[in-house]
Amino acid sequence: MDMGIRGREAIVCAASKGLGRGCAEALAGEGVDLVINARTKSELEATAEEIRKTYGVNVTAVAVDVTTEEGRKQVLAACPEPDIIVNNAGGPPPGNFRDWNREDWIKALDANMLTP
C-alpha cells in the first residue's frame, strides 16, 4: 500500500524490538527515513542496520532513555522537525491487565502521555 509518506522523516521511540520495531519497519517499508530510539545501544544498532539493509532508508539510532529531558533533547537533535512521531516508551508489564497495580499504570501513563 502506498500511504503517500515516502521521503518523510519519523521518530520512533522504543524501536529496537516489539511494537516500536514493528512501527519502524512499517514506516521504512513506506520509504520513510527514521530516527529510532531505545536504551540498549547494541540492540538498537542491530535493528537500525537490519532496517537499512531491508528497506534502503536512512536510519539514525539514538540510544537514550526518552523518558528523560536529556534523552528527549538528543532524539530531537537527531530529527528537529519530524513529520511523524511514534511515541512508544513502554507500558505496563506484559500479562493480564487485572494483575497490574496502580503503580504499573501510572508509570506507563507517565512514560507515554506525560513525558511528551
Rank of each mutant, 00 (worst) to 15 (best):
4 G>F: 00
5 I>A: 01
5 I>V: 15
6 R>D: 11
6 R>Q: 13
7 G>V: 05
8 R>N: 08
9 E>F: 07
9 E>N: 13
11 I>T: 05
12 V>A: 08
14 A>S: 14
14 A>D: 13
14 A>V: 02
16 S>C: 11
16 S>E: 05
16 S>P: 10
16 S>Y: 09
20 G>N: 10
21 R>Q: 15
22 G>C: 09
22 G>P: 15
24 A>P: 14
25 E>D: 06
25 E>C: 09
26 A>P: 10
29 G>D: 09
29 G>C: 12
29 G>H: 07
31 G>A: 06
32 V>F: 00
32 V>N: 01
32 V>R: 09
33 D>F: 02
35 V>D: 10
36 I>N: 08
36 I>S: 10
36 I>L: 07
37 N>H: 04
38 A>I: 04
39 R>C: 06
39 R>L: 08
40 T>A: 05
41 K>T: 12
41 K>C: 03
45 E>K: 10
50 E>S: 14
51 I>Y: 12
51 I>P: 14
51 I>L: 11
51 I>R: 13
52 R>F: 08
53 K>Y: 07
57 V>R: 05
58 N>C: 13
59 V>N: 11
60 T>V: 14
60 T>F: 01
61 A>C: 06
61 A>N: 08
62 V>P: 14
62 V>H: 02
64 V>H: 01
66 V>T: 09
67 T>C: 12
67 T>V: 14
68 T>R: 01
68 T>F: 07
69 E>M: 06
69 E>G: 10
70 E>W: 00
70 E>I: 08
72 R>L: 09
72 R>T: 04
72 R>D: 04
73 K>R: 13
73 K>F: 00
73 K>I: 02
74 Q>R: 15
76 L>F: 14
76 L>N: 07
77 A>H: 09
78 A>F: 05
79 C>K: 08
79 C>S: 11
80 P>M: 02
80 P>G: 01
81 E>S: 11
81 E>M: 12
81 E>I: 05
82 P>Q: 07
82 P>Y: 05
83 D>L: 03
83 D>N: 12
83 D>Q: 00
84 I>H: 08
85 I>M: 14
85 I>E: 09
85 I>F: 09
86 V>R: 01
89 A>W: 00
89 A>Q: 11
90 G>M: 01
91 G>N: 03
92 P>Y: 05
93 P>V: 03
93 P>N: 04
96 N>M: 09
97 F>S: 12
97 F>A: 11
100 W>P: 02
102 R>Y: 06
102 R>P: 03
103 E>V: 07
103 E>Y: 00
103 E>Q: 13
104 D>K: 03
104 D>M: 00
104 D>N: 14
105 W>A: 09
105 W>Q: 10
108 A>Q: 12
108 A>F: 00
109 L>I: 15
109 L>N: 11
111 A>H: 02
112 N>H: 00
113 M>Q: 11
113 M>I: 14
113 M>P: 00
116 P>N: 10
